[in-house]
């Protein structure tokens, strides 16, 4: 009796269930990820013999001015993303919570996040139209109010292209930060607000002393996600500027893709991909470690 029970516990079925999943992941997740790292040490010529070159690709990267310029650009994008792109969503979340009627809150919350219902690519293409030098909304508006002199070629001018890219989606309320801020505020127990009111705390005081501390954990998480997503930034730049004009909007992802698909330097592209992965991993691990420490 006991022996049959033990035999039934031998979990062959369990491994059989997992087998297809791991076969798929081995072929299309683990293998390419590892293969990319390995071939970052090769002059990779898919379909032909690829000579081993050691760390040559990494040395090339150290001297690649475009690559470092692309990090300057995502640095700027990152600072913008965690300041301006948080302030308005935070303000909107506070305003929604200031409404006294549950129905009004629901209506405004829905209207504010409605742009999330549209594909990201549509958002970018619509903003491309907004910036159109001749027919776009921004220049048409400037001309309509008599400010013709201010009308510009927003994404065609190296001085404004990066700002134009970062302004896509203004006022950025239809975003993850807004959803996070709003649910954090909704989770503040009503008793705390009542106690604050009894103590005579005003709206601003309440924001600094209650709301912000209560949101701190979520803000940390958003911060990490912002680092990770800025390392992967690329779709907007590719549609609008292709990294131009004059490399003013060059970003690491576009540099990596150009290395492979324009210069056909597959080994070098694998190197850049590996470095991007290592940076993402480092950020995730540091965040994880800090999270553990905070919990302990």
């Amino acid at each position: 009796m006991i022996s049959t029970k033990v035999r039934r516990r031998l979990p062959w079925g369990v491994y059989l269930v997992l087998l297809p999943t791991f076969a798929l992941l081995a072929a299309f997740a683990y293998y390419p990820a590892l293969n990319g790292m390995v071939h970052s040490l090769f002059e990779w010529r898919p379909g032909f013999e690829s000579p081993f070159v050691g760390f040559e690709n990494y040395l090339t990267m150290l001297g690649d001015d475009l690559w470092w310029a692309s990090f300057r650009n995502i640095g700027i994008i990152f600072v913008w993303a965690v300041t301006l792109m948080w302030v308005l969503p935070l303000l909107a979340a506070e305003l929604v919570m200031s409404l006294s009627s549950e129905r009004l809150r629901f209506v405004f919350r829905t209207l504010l996040i409605l742009p999330l219902a549209f594909p990201a690519v549509v958002n970018v293409l619509l903003w491309q139209f907004m910036y159109d030098p001749r027919d776009g909304v921004i220049n048409s508006l400037l001309r309509a109010v008599g400010l013709d002199g201010l009308a510009g070629n927003w994404i065609g001018d190296p001085d404004t292209a990066l700002v134009a890219l970062m302004t896509i989606g203004f006022p950025w309320v239809a975003s993850l930060p807004f959803l996070v801020f709003l649910s954090a505020l909704q989770n503040v127990p009503a008793e705390i607000y009542q106690a604050a009111e009894v103590d005579g705390a005003g709206r601003l005081r309440r924001f600094w002393s209650i709301d912000l501390p209560m949101m701190f954990r979520d803000v940390k998480l958003l911060f990490v996600l912002a680092v990770i997503s800025v390392l992967q930034y690329g779709m907007q730049a590719h549609i609008m500027t292709k990294g131009g004009p004059d490399n003013a909007t060059q970003v690491p992802v576009l540099r990596m893709l150009d290395a492979a698909f324009l210069d056909t330097s597959w080994g070098y592209a694998a190197t850049l991909g590996t470095v991007l992965f290592a940076l993402t991993l480092a950020v995730s691990l540091v965040a994880l470690a800090l999270g553990r420490k905070a919990q302990a």
Partner: peptide, 17 residues
């Protein structure tokens, strides 16, 4: 923790092969 974009190059080569 492996973003799809950082594996894009080797995955492309795999699909090509």
């Amino acid at each position: 923790m492996v973003p799809s974009i950082t594996s894009l190059i080797p995955l492309f080569v795999l699909m090509r092969d």
